[in-house]
Nucleic acid binder design. Structure first.
Lengths: 411, 411
DNA sequence: CCCATTTTTTCGAGCCTCGAAAAAATAAAT
DNA sequence: ATTTATTTTTTCGAGGCTCGAAAAAATGGG
């Protein structure tokens, strides 16, 4: 049985709503916020004055380009950048990036660490994460939350990395380690989910309640937005599009199973096929982007194993999207990652395969949007997720009322 | 931007919550309701007295088995069965069932109509639905809502049947036709979603926020509960598990595409394979249950085409569940329908295939529950969905406040 | 017949949102 | 320079809602 709605919860939600509206709009007036949220002017006025008094928000002059209209000019509101900050980590193959973001969502500082993830011990990986956060946050006062994006499967609670291709170790408790070290809440999420979060943030018109973000890279990942919320499974992050079965008993996948989509469409799979290796050959750990470019060039030029490799990759993706649509039917598809560099070769075949599925009935009505670089999306999504969490948990309760002590800012 | 939460909405939700709690519990006391909903005793008392005054609820004596404890005895509350009623239709191959249900959720009357769905014109199908409702509701006062379950794809708005295997016509506006005829809200939904709704209602401990209900019958259907809500896609009901691709370019499916799971696991597919027909042969419209029983018996007895047919069916289902779990990872699986009669043959093969997928990592931890007859589930799910809709839309607003006129019962 | 116990109602306090009206702040008109 | 029109923001009172505490109700046990 769902729990009843209580009175204080209402304020909490509306406060978070106002904060989110301000972060999204940048420097909106109170009137603007009222229109965005559907709340009355009086309510906005009340909440805004609370937030200002608490030091979360402030008035920031006359707004960007005051259009010199008649009437009392709007006064622009902005989040106080120093109200808090959050640290974002992104762990992927041989790389760990750290970013510190202020309360408005602007990057304060960022660092990129190279490390040999495959060789590092379990403890060394956890330690690397801790020290990356320590370094980026050093001497910078109160950061109140950490968000970690990892290439791999996380648990549904958002605290552990259950499995990842970048390390032989499994079940790494990044959440626990970071929380112990810094005493702030930590979330650990799949990197593709962060891409989806970023898409929604950047273009809510197109990417709103239901859509998929597919990452084409060494492996194949997916972030799924359903009913306006990032989908995660019961036990794990799920969304393992790359490990849906394309051909039963088919090519060997990095995950150890056979016939996964990734075993045809991941960079390693394309490389393996184009180089004439056996589909049962153990996948290589990494393929240089330059190498993939070369294969794509070859495929563009003439019929041959390279072209065939891309064709089979596209077929796997197309059928996969078809199956996905049969199940889920989310309208727009965003495709991100290094693999999009060859999207000109892939797209016709993807569409052809899709058209052969029940899920792809209106294959030509489906539009793909592509971006080659996933990094900015992951970082952005991570930051926004962390800040939204802050809005709700820390700044939601406010200072009045019984839950005051939660909301106190240590500054 | 999400809309802000308003004040009247809070009451509306809590009212609906109380009504739902009463319908679920049967005859709870106010104290019981308070515990279930998490609301305070005072709130429950206030809401209950409103509901009683409005004639939606009533006190019904001392509860079922008053345990004769010390203290003031509880007074049991029950929904007034005559507060409203809803009509439920279920349209499937050659059959149309109609049920009238009272506000408590008890069946008042039910009828079963035989009709040749494949031959009926579009207008005749719509007319059949209208007259079935007219007949069952005749002289029975105010029924306030109609819920239709159909075997086939519906639109996301829940008003039209976009496609169905039971008729050559597409895009049938049952919602419009029934609404025009009776002037009450109508919802049209996929029958498998209704199965899922019923499972949640009957056993919320097991079937709560995330699970799948799979229907094995002439075709293969699925109902998906995600985050405690029935999943429907953006444009259609989605959930077409049977039309995920099992083998690209594989067997011919009823939907016209090739290689769908259904083209291996539907009754027609098993029959086709067992009888040694080509996998490209046009599917038959129906297979008698007796015939399927005979094939199952044959398969149990000896190696041969029948056993092979069931083996291939199980493989398709197993790989399909594997792909589904890779994406969605919902823990419990319920399997319903005539196809479960052969589940003893299917299960080992399903598990074996599932174990060969990444999604089925913990294949042996996954438990299946089966029921041969889907009808009661569909009916029950339909009724509960309709009643919940009523609770919210009609009885939610109450009589006080600005939205009073919506809530008036015509009785 | 009184006490212990449990359920239900009542009552006042404290929030919250809202609409209307007032106040504030400016551009345009005179 | 002053007035008027216009737009934004604040103020204020009304009306709701939930909650906790206390009171009232209803019964079994001693």
């Amino acid at each position: 049985m769902t729990a009843g709605i209580r009175h204080d919860e209402m304020r909490k939600r509306n406060r978070a709503l106002v904060i989110a509206a301000v972060r999204r709009a940048g420097q909106p007036s109170r009137t603007e916020i009222a229109r965005q949220t559907g709340l009355s002017h009086s309510t906005i006025s009340a909440i805004a004055s609370d937030l200002i008094e608490e030091g979360i928000m402030r008035e920031v002059g006359q707004g960007e380009a005051a259009p010199a209209r008649r009437g009392r000019p709007q006064v622009a509101l902005g989040l106080d950048p120093e109200a808090a900050s959050v640290a974002c980590l992104h762990l992927s193959f041989n790389s760990l990036s750290a970013v510190l973001v202020d309360y408005r969502g602007r990057v304060i500082d960022s660092r990129l660490h190279r490390l040999e993830t495959l060789r590092l011990s379990r403890e060394a990986l956890l330690a690397a994460a801790v020290s990356a956060v320590r370094e980026i946050s050093a001497g910078r006062g109160n950061f109140l939350r950490i968000a970690v994006a990892v290439q791999g499967i996380t648990d549904a609670a958002g605290s552990r990395m259950l499995w990842s291709p970048i390390t032989p170790h499994s079940d790494l408790d990044f959440g626990g380690a970071l929380e112990a070290a810094f005493g702030v809440p930590v979330t650990v999420q799949n990197d593709c989910n962060m891409i989806a979060a970023a898409l929604r943030w950047r273009n809510p018109r197109r990417y709103r309640d239901n859509f998929v973000a597919i990452l084409l890279s060494h492996g194949i990942g997916m972030g799924l937005m359903l009913n306006g919320k990032l989908f995660t499974g019961t036990r794990s992050s799920a969304g393992e599009f790359g490990h849906m079965i394309h051909r039963p008993e088919g090519a060997l996948c990095r995950c150890g199973k056979r016939g996964c989509i990734e075993a045809y469409a991941g960079n390693y799979a394309i490389w393996r096929r184009a180089r004439g290796r056996s589909a049962m050959e153990e996948p290589v750990a990494d393929v240089e982007p330059g190498e993939m470019e070369a294969l794509a060039a070859m495929a563009r030029q003439e019929e041959g194993p390279a072209r065939q490799a891309f064709r089979e990759a596209a077929e796997a993706i197309g059928y996969g999207i078809g199956s996905l649509f049969a199940l889920i039917d989310p309208a727009p598809v965003a495709i991100v990652g290094q693999g999009t560099a060859a999207f000109d070769i892939l797209e016709p075949e993807i569409r052809a395969a899709l058209a052969r599925t029940a899920g792809g009935q209106h294959a030509d009505a489906i539009s793909f949007e592509t971006w080659p670089d996933e990094e900015p999306f992951i970082q952005h999504g991570c930051a926004m997720t962390a800040l939204s969490g802050l809005d709700w948990e820390v700044f939601g309760p406010g200072m009045g009322g019984r839950s005051a002590e939660n909301g106190r800012i240590v500054a």
